[in-house]
């Protein structure tokens, strides 16, 4: 059996996959912004002086981290409507990605927050800064730069898991490739192209994360 790569077919589907890749990138970017914010909120809630808040947040984070993303995607899309929360597949998928990776990011932030020397808190108290100002101006700006590489890893990981959204028929790259394949009975070209798309974007985002890291290192006179 000989195999021939079909260039004509490739040319035909490339624009379609190109459009679908926009959906994938959208889901990645919005999902990650959501994850970064949710993660920070979780991490801060886990520092609350109120024990119930701390414990409840810890339980939620632990629960989300120990259940599969695919189940969470189904849950948000199919189960939440039972409770009157309805959303389209894309929104549900992004929300699930944000929650799932948010709980991972919260651990990253926690490590960053824990590493702030006690003296920084004490200086903030001695200057009579409010709790809000202390977090906003003193603690968070110092806690985040060291954890950017770890957050960047989750960005790439989240990106590579976006094909799971095909399970609820979001027309991202994977779902589009599956549809193309089933229409033409030619799976090789679409699936290979999707792989190449992912490779390309992974390399680009990894390079971007490294740039940001390098930039963070040179600020503040290198201190």
């Amino acid at each position: 059996m000989t195999f021939e790569w079909d260039w004509a077919y490739t040319q035909e589907i490339l624009p379609i996959l190109g459009k679908a890749s926009i959906i994938t990138v959208q889901a990645t970017v919005i999902g990650f912004i959501l994850a970064a914010l949710i993660g920070l909120v979780f991490a801060l809630l886990r520092m609350s002086t109120l024990a119930p808040v701390r414990l409840a947040t810890g339980a939620v984070v632990e629960f989300i981290r120990s259940t599969p993303l695919l189940i969470q995607i189904f849950f948000v899309y199919f189960v939440l409507p039972e409770f009157g929360v309805t959303m389209d597949a894309m929104t549900a998928g992004i929300l699930a990605l944000g929650l799932h990776y948010g709980s991972y990011c919260s651990e990253v932030y926690r490590a960053g927050l824990d590493n702030i020397p006690k003296g920084q808190w004490e200086a903030a108290t001695a200057l009579n800064l409010s709790t809000l100002t202390t977090f906003k101006d003193i603690i968070i700006p110092q806690a985040i730069p060291p954890v950017v590489p770890a957050l960047g890893n989750y960005l790439v990981a989240l990106f590579k898991e976006t094909p799971l959204l095909s399970a609820i028929a979001v027309l991202e790259l994977m779902q589009t490739a599956k549809i193309l394949g089933s229409e033409s009975f030619q799976y090789t070209e679409p699936i290979t192209l999707v792989g190449l798309f992912f490779l390309f974007f992974s390399l680009v985002s990894a390079a971007l994360v490294r740039q940001v890291e390098a930039w963070l290192k040179t600020r503040h006179g290198g201190a």
Partner: peptide
């Protein structure tokens, strides 16, 4: 009240 610490505790950023 204001305080100065042994290890400065300046905000490095």
């Amino acid at each position: 009240i204001g305080m100065v610490f042994q290890h400065f505790n300046l905000f490095p950023h």
